[in-house]
Design a protein around this nucleic acid. Structure first.
Lengths: 209, 209, 209, 209
DNA sequence: TATGAATGAGTCTTCATTCAT
DNA sequence: GATGAATGAAGACTCATTCAT
């Protein structure tokens, strides 16, 4: 392989390694993934991989770091920019299928679920920094919608789990089964139904006298 | 260790090994789990473990076999015995927290998600025999409720994923985080809200003239 | 298995175990042979085998002991009872094919060649007590025939190796190849030719003027 | 250990490993030989051995492959280049002692006899490709000599076994006993006698009127 | 920087041997 | 005496990591 001379060369090579690693971790699991395979997948040799990451552990952590924040931001953008709960659900219905199909998020979810045990402290950190944040955003959204009289809900932060549940299910399902016969799901239709269902689920009770 | 002489001795020892294995696979992942640790957790030696299971692979498959069907049946019982969709949701609200807290199902879910790659064929089989079945049961339930005019829903079998989503989320969450500070969730409240939300989500539109 | 009550019961059971062990050692080699398989082959359990032989090593040694002397005696009988070298060869021609085909000798030869390294001291002992003895008997036979003017030979004890060579070859060949296609040898014909060839090989030079 | 960088470095290291493996297989038998000992004997570590051979099995097969053909060729050269049976025997008398004392052939013979059971298919192949070929060469030699009136023999291809027998005996004997007291054999003398004995054994009957 | 040869700790699996029943 | 469950030492093989080139 040619040498990476410039800083941006190094950055892009680093990124290729992260991508390759996520793929291998996803396909084989952290323990079973081989450093040499990761390097090869990125078109490099085993030794070179170690110029970029000190260890397999470091590689794992780097993946989490590299993906957690951006993903959080995307989701955050959807949740916070929407003027209403209803509008947020519509945006989810539009974006979720694409995110599930094209982003690394579903693969990352699978890796985190599957290999979390390797670094318990990372798992806790991840939950606090990412998952709690995301649930908090949706909880906040519901909370504000409730305050605005848009919806009626007992505990907005718990309700966020009801809203997010189908997304997790769809993401993991896609990661695990999308390429097996009978494993395809019509995500567009599903999330259209999801938006509509959630709107009705939390709609204020009509007291129309 | 005392000797297992009778058939039932051997059965119970086999069961202890399966339990120990699920725990180890759950805590460390299939690859990283050590046969010796599994044996020790069951109070036996490495060699003895091999009297009961031919290999690590066989142990993994035995876990799936031993747990898949019973779990399917429990869920099936809830879904099919209910006289209505509404009643089924109420039952889920009652049982789900207990199942999530006390059964092996959440740990099994985590293991299957995390180590699915080890035996791709098992994963597919599991999806077809268990997951598709469960989703199918709920889909059927929704379908019948729709036919009975109890609910209004575009695609009952897709809607089943909306209903199941929060269960998966709660199960995995419990498996991963229930023992970490801040990871507890009020499952009773959550599933009460879930039942109520789902009832409203698919309630027929009131045409109140 | 029924208990061996009488002394002769025990003897015959011991013999069955020795036979089974020779078979397994022959088929798998000493290292790879499993005590359990030996026991099963004799219709007994692993534990019972240890009532008769203290260890795998002891079993190996017992085989040598049990077979070495009788075999030596049979050969000795042929070599010493013959009134002449010529007559001895004729008897070999008659007996060798049967011995090769039906006795344990060829299998024993293979085991000794193959697993001798396990017990170097046994190998040396075996050479001295059995092989040197057999070669010595034939050497003696040749020596006497030379003294009697029946044959002409430079070194009778070395010549014995020329006479014995084809027997070893045929024995090992039979042990290794007799049951594979194309591995059969017409032993009767071979040893008839052998007898005739050896008679001529060592015949005194005719100085018939 | 220094690194093998060039192709020829790797070739020679491979050869060292083959030599070490033959030694270990010869001394301990295939089953009992330890990969680590083989590696150490070649001055390498266990892991490095696996860079050159995929498995213990592969190592065994590689030994056969590496030695079978060259040995066949040497023998073939002696057998086919001789102008007469008599001349061939004289050449054998010259070469056999050296081959037995210095080549790997006797050790290989012992390994093949002793560990044949490990790979039955290799054994059959070896018999067909090497042993049958060698016996065939000598058979052919005898056959031509017979046609030329040099010798008189009923079945030249069977007679080859009579000629070869002492070579096998001497080879195995040397491999097993040459380094034990009393195990030395005067090979030069033996093969001189062998040549002379075989010439006489198959000499045409003098019909001297 | 980049490479891949070398290493050895770590893990699955086998099996001789023991011993409770 | 007979059995086979239990044990743990031993060995094949893998792979993260190092480092000479």
């Amino acid at each position: 392989m040619l040498r990476a001379r410039t800083v941006s060369d190094k950055d892009s090579r680093r990124q290729e390694l992260l991508d390759a690693a996520l793929d291998e971790f996803f396909e084989r699991g952290f323990s079973a993934a081989r450093m040499e395979d990761i390097a090869k997948r990125a078109g490099l040799s085993k030794g070179t991989l170690y110029l970029y990451f000190d260890s397999k552990d470091a590689l794992f952590k780097a993946i989490i770091d590299a993906l957690a924040t951006p993903n959080l931001e995307v989701i955050s953008a959807i949740a916070t920019s929407a003027p209403s709960f209803s509008e947020a659900l519509d945006r989810v219905a539009v974006f979720a299928p694409t995110v599930i199909r094209t982003s690394k998020l579903p693969r990352l979810m699978k890796v985190i679920v599957g290999d979390s045990h390797t670094f318990p402290e990372i798992l806790i950190e991840y939950r606090q920094n990412i998952l709690d944040r995301i649930l908090g955003l949706f909880g906040e959204l519901l909370s504000q919608a409730k305050a605005a009289g848009e919806i009626e809900v007992e505990d907005p932060y718990l309700a966020a789990r009801i809203v997010m549940g189908p997304m997790l299910l769809s993401g993991l399902w896609h990661a695990l089964f999308s390429d097996t016969p009978g494993g395809e799901v019509d995500l567009e239709k599903l999330f259209r139904m999801h938006a509509s269902a959630m709107k009705k689920a939390f709609a204020p009770v009509e007291n129309s006298q």
